[in-house]
């Protein structure tokens, strides 16, 4: 009896003392935190992907609350949660919702083994950055995909995977949150975040090769040769031609698809459009024989409904490309070796 009593008293006292200590410590060392940070963090997806540019969701929440003191959270966006989450964040912070266009990662290279023959064999570390520093790569194209899958490894949403057949990464548009990690992971800046477009429909030049047309064509039969035909047919001034490479400005593109038809190399691809109705009459010119020069295999990009390519004579392209005066930029950001200074 006595033993039990002593035990109860001792343990009870111990508990009391510790509780009092804990209480005092909690009061003394309490950290003042804006309660809204926790509220914002609660609505965030908690994927901690860093896609917003802040260290995790907590960091993003802190940044949002801090920015709200200035009255606006413009420029801050959670790529994973998208508009729905940002609306909630704005609500918590008592601000007007910020419009942000949904984006998606686009792989701007179609250089599969069939289109871009391999000319050498890389035997080093299977890492895109190392391969990029080693040399121009296994093919004649020094701008295109190295195929070692750094982007796929960087994706935390399983939205990118390497297609073993083409050796190129493919984007699963439903899973892609446009967090931008793959963009940073690619040493050749092939992946671009482009506006999703209405119903996911959009036009893009799937090539980043800045060489002159003749060099590009030798390396890859589906690369942009900078012939400028797309620029000529575009009525909306949406195509920029720089360094022998066309680029479609998504803000100006009206999805008329004329450039796609005009492109002799099939570097311009229309994504997520319904299949085109076959034209009733065959083209009148004798150049209709030209399709022989076209690749047998249709460009493979995730979820692309490949339209039947318009026959365009390929020959006409080369004089135009010769007229391009720009010298191609050599790879700008490869590591310069400074072995023995």
């Amino acid at each position: 009896m006595n033993v039990i009593l002593v035990a109860v008293i001792v343990l009870g006292l111990l508990g009391l003392i510790l509780a009092a200590l804990l209480f005092l410590i909690a009061k003394k060392f309490a950290v003042e935190e804006d309660p809204r940070i926790a509220q914002v963090a609660d609505v965030l997806p908690q994927a901690n992907c860093g896609g917003c540019g802040f260290p995790g969701c907590q960091g993003f929440a802190e940044a949002c609350v801090k920015a709200s003191a200035q009255g606006s959270i413009e420029g801050k966006s959670c790529p994973v949660g998208g508009k729905a989450v940002m609306d909630k964040v704005s609500e918590i912070l008592g601000l007007a919702a910020v419009e942000a266009e949904p984006k998606v990662a686009v792989v701007r290279c179609q250089g599969s083994c069939a289109h871009r023959p391999r000319t050498s064999e890389y035997v080093g570390v299977k890492n895109c950055h190392v391969a990029n520093a080693t040399s121009g790569g296994e093919t004649g194209c020094f701008f295109g995909c190295l195929g070692l899958g750094e982007c796929a490894a960087s994706c935390s949403f399983g939205a990118l995977h390497m297609n073993p057949e083409t050796g190129l990464p493919e984007v699963d548009e439903e899973k892609c949150t446009a967090c931008g990690r793959c963009v940073k992971a690619c040493p050749r800046h092939i992946i671009e975040l482009r506006p999703m477009g209405k119903k996911g429909r959009r036009m893009s030049v799937l090539c980043v090769n800045k060489e002159k047309g003749a060099v590009t064509r030798k390396a890859c039969d589906i690369g942009c040769i900078g012939c400028g035909k797309c620029q000529k047919v575009c009525e909306f001034d949406a195509i920029i031609l720089e360094n022998n490479l066309a680029y479609i400005d998504p803000a100006k593109c009206r999805l008329c698809r004329k450039c796609e038809e005009a492109c002799p190399q099939h570097s311009i691809v229309a994504m997520n459009f319904p299949p085109r109705k076959p034209k009733p009459e065959a083209p009148a010119q004798p150049a209709a024989a030209a399709p022989a020069a076209q690749p047998a295999e249709a460009p493979k990009v995730a979820k692309v409904e490949t339209p039947t390519p318009e026959p365009v004579p390929v020959k006409a392209a080369s004089p135009v490309s010769e007229a391009m005066k720009e010298m191609p930029n050599p790879m700008s950001d490869q590591t310069q070796q400074e072995t023995q200074k």
């Binding site: 080693t134 040399s135 121009g136 020094f142 060489e211 002159k212 060099v215 010298m327 191609p328 050599p330 790879m331 490869q334």
Partner: peptide
């Protein structure tokens, strides 16, 4: 001509 050529770096350079 003044063009590009593949050099020892493995890239096409002016």
């Amino acid at each position: 001509k003044i063009d590009t050529a593949i050099d020892a770096s493995g890239y096409r350079k002016p």
